[in-house]
């Protein structure tokens, strides 16, 4: 889901960068001493997750883990994802430095949206927790895929077609991410409930 360099037009890159800066600023403002370790660990998890890929048709997709990052970090997902993406661009040549802003927004904005949508339900009873955690993992990747479609709209011209294609390609990832998010949330709720109550 990393957009390569040289595909997007200037205005898209610029607005992506502006949104990423704004999101990161809010995230850093909300980042307090007690949550640094959590943010760092999740950033590292996000950094590694992209290396686990699922080959689909002519292209291939990989795990994102932005659902769980968003659910646990809220706005702090922005700096966590920005750092992870920057290191991925430098070390693995995924995405690129010019598309860093757009890629950050593509992955972190859905994370924040999902945080607001699903975090109120995480501390409810077991069934609701499982359903909302699964929905969070699933929906977050879905939103990211739609955002990729929106970013590519200006070059590929057909928003619906490209979005459908990206969403379809990421369907297996959505299902897997749903399970991973559910597993992590249920696990954390048992062993470290303080991590999901803030």
């Amino acid at each position: 889901m990393h957009l390569s360099e040289g595909i997007l037009s200037g205005p898209v890159l610029f607005s992506g960068a502006a949104l990423a800066v704004a999101g990161t600023a809010v995230g850093l403002k909300k980042l307090d001493y007690d949550r640094i370790a959590q943010t760092g660990i999740l950033s590292a998890a996000f950094f590694v997750a992209s290396l686990i890929h699922v080959p689909i048709g002519p292209t291939s997709v990989h795990l994102l883990l932005n659902g769980i990052v968003g659910l646990l970090l809220g706005w702090c997902a922005f700096p966590a994802i920005l750092i992870a993406l920057l290191l991925q661009a430098l070390f693995f040549q995924f995405g690129g430095l010019t598309t860093l802003g757009v890629n950050t927004v593509v992955m972190a904005l859905p994370a924040v949206i999902c945080y607001y949508l699903f975090s109120p339900f995480i501390n409810k009873n077991q069934v609701i927790t499982i359903i909302s955690a699964y929905a969070c993992g699933f929906f977050c990747v879905f939103l990211s895929a739609v955002l990729v479609g929106a970013a590519l709209m200006f070059t590929e011209k057909n928003f619906l077609e490209i979005s459908m294609m990206v969403v379809a390609a990421h369907l297996p990832v959505m299902i897997i991410e749903g399970f991973i998010t559910t597993f992590c949330i249920v696990f954390l709720k048992k062993v470290q409930p303080s991590m999901i109550t803030h």
Binding site: Y33, G40, L51, L87
Partner: peptide, 27 residues
């Protein structure tokens, strides 16, 4: 990506975490 790249990246993240913790602890 090689294993070096992967662990290098994780190392950077941990380092940045340390820097952030240092400044915030001062604050």
């Amino acid at each position: 990506p090689s294993v070096n790249d992967i662990f290098g990246g994780i190392g950077y993240i941990l380092g940045l975490m340390g820097v952030a913790a240092f400044f915030l602890s001062k604050k």
